[in-house]
Design a protein around this nucleic acid. Structure first.
Lengths: 118, 118
DNA sequence: CTCGTAGTACGAGGGTTATCGTACGAGTCG
DNA sequence: CGACTCGTACGATAACCCTCGTACTACGAG
């Protein structure tokens, strides 16, 4: 594990056992957050907050990432000045086998169906 | 088809093509609505609104059923004085294959994990 | 140390949601 | 018809959520 995480700046995450399905669904019911999660899943890697091209201000972006983190969907860690984001795939798959893949597939399908760029 | 539906009291439903994943997820992110959907799925049959033992008033119950209907999760039809509710399994499976089952399985798992009566 | 970049904290505005109570409408049963 | 049950409509209230702007902190580069 690349422990390049900046020390002394830990962020609160729910334990796996504290993750609630309702919270996950709520987190993913926002188009912006769903888009972030889709991109994160496609990348299969950590991405910084600023990597995402979202049509809102930095404040709002911070808010959405916090919702995703506090619902247990993503894990966030500071590396230098950047804050890296990664899907909590292991935890989600462990709690809800198949759910994340179904959700991502559903999002992809809808994207194709609606002719979105994504 | 059991066309015992009361005529002249049609309820507005979204077409299959109008169903949005975000709306579905939002609808299911409420514990009460998720519970209703789970019960509906387990019953594999139409259930009246009053069948459900929810800890809220009738007004609030009406509200939650409307959210489920307008998001495309359930289909509602009047039969006499009762309003029957059924999952839109065909439409949801057609749009998002596997999603509904994953969601229901996830809800069941969490219910067991948390020791709910569900 | 200074500057720039990445992101946070806080507060406010505006919209949506969950809940309720009361009054009402539609069917059914006597 | 009259009474009863099921569910709706409407208004109110309180909470929540998305968004923003501004002021701020943390880190890295020079």
């Amino acid at each position: 594990m690349t422990d390049t995480a900046t020390p002394g700046r830990a962020l609160p995450h729910p334990d796996r056992a504290e993750i609630r399905l309702e919270a996950v669904l709520h987190a993913l019911s926002d188009p912006m957050r769903l888009g972030i999660v889709r991109e994160l899943a496609a990348a299969e890697a950590e991405l910084s907050c600023s990597h995402f091209d979202v049509p809102v201000t930095k404040s709002t972006t911070t808010h959405h990432f916090r919702v995703l983190r506090e619902s247990g969907v993503i894990r966030q860690v500071y590396r230098g000045t950047a804050k890296m984001n990664a899907l909590r795939r292991d935890d989600l798959d462990g709690l809800f086998p198949g759910l994340l893949d179904s959700l991502l597939a559903a999002a992809d399908r809808q994207s194709v169906r609606l002719g979105d760029a994504g």
